[in-house]
């Protein structure tokens, strides 16, 4: 393995997976990272975390493994652990903007907005702000109710380059989490168009449509369940949508984007 393959030059390229003589893939760090990415897009954060760990067992210098672990801890709601692990990763990759941004996201979710803003400031001051850095900034600003958050989301998508579908998925999720359903819808629709096999993308689109009260929600969530049968979050979202009451219908109507 070349030592230069760990250096980053902006655009993320798909990592080639080596195969053995019999055609089965070699279980290298790259293989586990690929698996982790697939599992993440399927919404299985727990298994994705394990695969990131396995990738690091193969090669502890894989930055993606560390960053992936921190992201998965955040997705699993273990923010304190994510902060701890980001600190550890920062010992190995000092001042890395993505790791600083992940600390910002964890701080935002725990409610430490001042710390979150400090981390995003630091992350943005580093060279080469990645989509994740912009999205972390957007999340902190959304939490503060700042109107400039949408510009950060746009910057994230613009900075994504080849990884735009993934960035759009993340942008949609960030906006949806902050309750900005209407702008999230556009990003999530694009993400589903580019990543039709991602159960996570379908679930987030379904949640967004449910929040807006769109009738196609049931179809979207059913598609998600087709990709990942018996997935509890999708089942819960579908069940909740089908049993929603008058108040939620009125709320959804009021959230819908208006023309003009």
């Amino acid at each position: 393995m070349s030592r230069f393959e760990n250096l980053e030059f902006g655009d993320a390229k798909p990592r080639p997976i080596r195969t053995g003589a019999d055609g089965t893939p070699v279980r290298s760090a790259g293989y586990f990272l690929e698996q982790a990415e697939k599992l993440y897009l399927a919404g299985d954060f727990e298994l994705a975390l394990r695969n990131y760990s396995r990738a690091l067992e193969q090669n502890a210098a894989e930055y993606e493994g560390w960053f992936g672990q921190v992201r998965m801890l955040i997705e699993l709601g273990e923010y304190e652990e994510a902060l701890l692990w980001a600190d550890k990763a920062l010992e190995l990759f000092p001042e890395h903007p993505d790791l600083l941004a992940s600390k910002s996201v964890a701080s935002t979710r725990t409610g430490d907005l001042e710390e979150a803003m400090a981390y995003t400031d630091n992350a943005l001051s580093q060279r080469g702000a990645t989509p994740y850095v912009w999205l972390a900034r957007a999340e902190a600003l959304l939490k503060r109710g700042s109107a400039t958050a949408t510009h950060c989301v746009s910057n994230a998508v613009a900075a994504a380059g080849n990884a735009a579908p993934r960035a759009e998925l993340e942008a949609g999720r960030t906006l949806l989490r902050a309750g900005h359903c209407a702008p999230a819808l556009g990003y999530l629709r694009k993400a589903v168009g580019f990543l039709p096999g991602s159960a996570l993308a379908w679930l987030e689109l379904g949640r967004c449509q449910a929040a807006l009260g769109f009738p196609e929600t049931a179809m979207t969530l059913s598609q998600c369940l087709t990709l990942r049968p018996n997935w509890r979050p999708a089942q819960v979202a579908l069940d909740r949508f089908q049993r929603r009451g008058l108040i939620s219908r009125v709320q959804s109507f009021l959230r819908r984007p208006r023309r003009g």
Binding site: A60, A61, Y63, L92
Partner: peptide, 24 residues
């Protein structure tokens, strides 16, 4: 910058701490 470029497997702890389910 001090970033890790190459490390041997097992040289550093790579399994993150986890939150117990009851704490969540």
């Amino acid at each position: 910058c001090g970033s890790l470029l190459e490390a041997k497997a097992g040289a550093v702890e790579v399994h993150p701490p986890r939150a117990p389910g009851w704490k969540k």
